[in-house]
Amino acid sequence: MKYVLRRIAMFLVALLAISLIVFLMLRVLPGDIAAVMAGTNSPPERVAQLRAQMGLDKPLPQQYFEWVGGLLHGDFGMTMLTGQPVASVVASRAAITFPLIVLGMLVALLFGIPLGYLAVRTTNRAAKALFQTIAIIGGAIPALWGGLLLILLFARGLGVFEVFPAQGFPSRGWTDPSRALLSLVLPALTVGMIVGATIMRYTRSSLQTIASSGYVEMAMACGMTRRQALWHVGMRLAMPQLVSVIGLTFAEMVTGVMVIENLFALPGIGTGLVSDLGHRDLIAVQSELFMLAAFFLVIGLLVDLTHRALDPRLGEGSNE
């Protein structure tokens, strides 16, 4: 319980620091935010009206505390472009980005962990070289190139095998689940192919370290085969490190899929953030950056707690 409370306290302090950094980040930019958002040819009256509308004419401490107070009540502000609540706009985008990330992570896990395990289990030199080549090539493939390759192979109207939609997301969203899921298949395969190579390398490295530490030999001395010892003992001991890698990779994928979303014309979080920056909707960008940062911190907290649950040695004795 002390460990959990300490981690939660650190999370709250980090969240407060992030809110202050995000708030000041847009205020220290050169020029007037209201003038930037209004446009270069806007009259002074329009700039003054916009500054008063956004509360930029108030002292900075008052602006910050009003913004944080709104965050605590779930009010992330309004977009200047459409007048919609930022929270609802981000929620509609997240309904595309997070399913894409989950599908991509499932592909990566189904690809990365078994191949990493097989790369350590096999004793054949040719097979080891093949697995190493797969890990290197998979991690070196640019997301844009990998996505284009899948489009040329499997996209309707363009590919050799016309199976999946090439771009876009159904206007009805997840009310049409089959079409929505099909539109995410190629993006998820692109993400999974790249992330899976990374997970494969971490799995192989962790298992190799454990296999050379004597745990596998001890399990074999108790009657297990090498395959059983690697799977039942090696994978269990490697799991805490893999959980950390998978959790942090999942968090990074929120912004990492930005290229994929643009390539496949998916209106997700990454595409929306770029669009808001392009339209100079800086108040919306402020709340969106804070939500993304908060998401990273939440994932980090969950990874810490899961890691501690899987490996009790990290607890009271080390006081970490």
Rank of each mutant, 00 (worst) to 15 (best):
Val4His: 09
Leu5Val: 04
Leu15Trp: 00
Ser19Ala: 07
Leu20Glu: 07
Leu20Asn: 02
Val22Pro: 09
Ile33Phe: 01
Met37Ser: 10
Ala38Ile: 03
Gly39Glu: 09
Thr40Gly: 12
Pro43Tyr: 00
Ala48Glu: 14
Arg51Thr: 06
Lys58Pro: 14
Gln62Lys: 10
Gln63Val: 10
Phe65Gly: 05
Glu66Arg: 05
Glu66Asn: 12
Thr79Val: 00
Thr82Gln: 09
Ser88Gln: 08
Met105Lys: 05
Leu106Ser: 11
Phe111Lys: 12
Gly116Ile: 06
Tyr117Phe: 15
Val120Asp: 08
Thr123Leu: 00
Asn124Arg: 11
Phe131Leu: 02
Ala135His: 11
Gly139Lys: 01
Pro142His: 01
Ala143Val: 09
Leu148Cys: 10
Leu150Arg: 07
Ile151Ser: 04
Ile151Ala: 03
Gly173Met: 05
Ser178Leu: 11
Ala180Glu: 05
Leu182Ala: 13
Val191Gln: 15
Gly192Val: 06
Ser205Leu: 05
Leu207Tyr: 06
Thr209Trp: 00
Ser213Trp: 11
Ser213Asn: 14
Met218Glu: 13
Ala229Gln: 04
Leu230Lys: 02
Val233Ala: 09
Val233Tyr: 09
Ser244His: 06
Met253Ser: 13
Met258Ser: 13
Glu261Trp: 01
Ile269Met: 11
Val274Met: 13
Asp281His: 07
Ile283Ala: 06
Val285Trp: 04
Val285Gly: 07
Phe290Val: 10
Met291Trp: 04
Leu292Ser: 02
Phe295Glu: 02
Leu297Asp: 08
Leu297Pro: 14
Val298Phe: 01
Ile299Gln: 01
Asp304Lys: 02
Arg313Gln: 13
Ser318Gly: 14
Glu320Met: 07
